[in-house]
Simulated scan of single mutants.
Amino acid sequence: MSELTLAELDTRYQDYFSVEHRININIQPITEALPDIAQLENAIPEAFLLSSQSSELNMSALRSLNRLGELAEELANYLQQQAKKMDLLLQYVLRQQDIAEQRFYSLHYGGSGCCYLAQSPLPVLQAVEIRLFLPNNEGAVFCFGQVLSCQQVADNWQIKVVFTRIREQDRELIVRASLHQQSKLLKQHAEQRQLSSS
């Protein structure tokens, strides 16, 4: 599968909504062609695979508890505490994967891609390696993408990147994180409106 055209990238960027939120990302331009899905699987660092598996296991365990009835709540609380311990350890391991020289902060992100500010431009259609570190211990994602646009904003460059090589479970993780953040923002706005009207 080769790189996408600008029109294809633009269409893909519109596939999912994005949320305005600052998360830590690493962007590294690559000179070789975008890898295929099999090559992506081989390129994903172990810590990112563990993060994805941990998130899937937590969701699966909690879904299973819904069938237990009354005892489910206590058991769910216990499992969530254990999951939090594992998340803390995993977050420590993932922080070791954050490369300072490649670090940027998103303006917004979603299931299709992300947008961030950089001090230097990247060419449109440039292939990049992407590491997203999701908020609130929700995990991390390693994928590849292409630059959709690069526009100068004051002394910086606003760069939009589309995720073009990403595992579906990782895209779902990003979508869940962005929906969770959107929900928090809507709740904050509703609370602020209530305070200002009283």
Results as ranks from 00 to 15, higher is better:
27 I>L: 14
71 L>F: 00
180 H>V: 02
153 V>N: 05
133 F>C: 09
137 N>W: 01
139 G>D: 09
160 K>W: 02
94 L>E: 10
129 E>L: 12
119 Q>D: 15
100 A>K: 14
110 G>A: 08
113 G>E: 07
75 L>P: 02
149 S>V: 06
95 R>M: 06
144 F>V: 05
60 S>A: 09
99 I>S: 03
107 L>Y: 10
19 V>S: 06
63 R>W: 03
174 I>F: 09
192 Q>I: 11
27 I>V: 15
9 L>E: 13
7 A>E: 15
81 Q>W: 09
10 D>L: 10
19 V>K: 09
110 G>T: 04
72 A>R: 11
136 N>A: 15
34 L>A: 08
182 Q>Y: 12
152 Q>M: 13
181 Q>F: 00
76 A>H: 02
15 D>R: 15
124 V>Y: 00
33 A>H: 14
176 R>Y: 05
45 P>V: 10
72 A>Y: 04
60 S>D: 06
50 L>P: 00
35 P>N: 07
24 N>V: 11
140 A>M: 11
158 Q>D: 03
183 S>I: 06
41 E>P: 00
163 F>D: 04
16 Y>N: 15
46 E>Y: 14
7 A>L: 13
176 R>C: 01
43 A>W: 08
141 V>Y: 02
176 R>K: 11
27 I>G: 04
9 L>D: 13
48 F>M: 09
41 E>V: 13
58 N>M: 06
58 N>Q: 13
53 Q>T: 06
36 D>L: 02
2 S>W: 03
101 E>H: 04
97 Q>E: 15
31 T>M: 03
191 E>N: 11
26 N>H: 03
55 S>M: 10
72 A>L: 02
189 H>M: 11
164 T>W: 06
173 L>D: 04
38 A>K: 14
13 Y>P: 02
112 S>K: 08
129 E>Y: 03
138 E>M: 15
113 G>D: 07
155 D>V: 13
115 C>G: 03
73 E>C: 00
194 Q>N: 13
79 L>I: 10
90 L>G: 02
130 I>T: 11
49 L>N: 04
141 V>P: 02
154 A>D: 12
181 Q>K: 14
81 Q>D: 14
80 Q>H: 08
29 P>M: 10
104 F>T: 05
161 V>F: 07
118 A>T: 00
177 A>D: 05
177 A>F: 02
101 E>I: 09
109 Y>D: 05
30 I>W: 09
27 I>A: 06
89 L>F: 09
60 S>L: 10
67 R>C: 01
23 I>D: 07
41 E>F: 01
142 F>H: 15
56 E>M: 11
187 K>W: 01
185 L>G: 00
88 L>I: 15
89 L>Y: 08
159 I>L: 00
177 A>V: 03
67 R>W: 03
192 Q>N: 13
174 I>K: 06
107 L>N: 11
107 L>W: 02
39 Q>F: 01
62 L>T: 06
117 L>P: 00
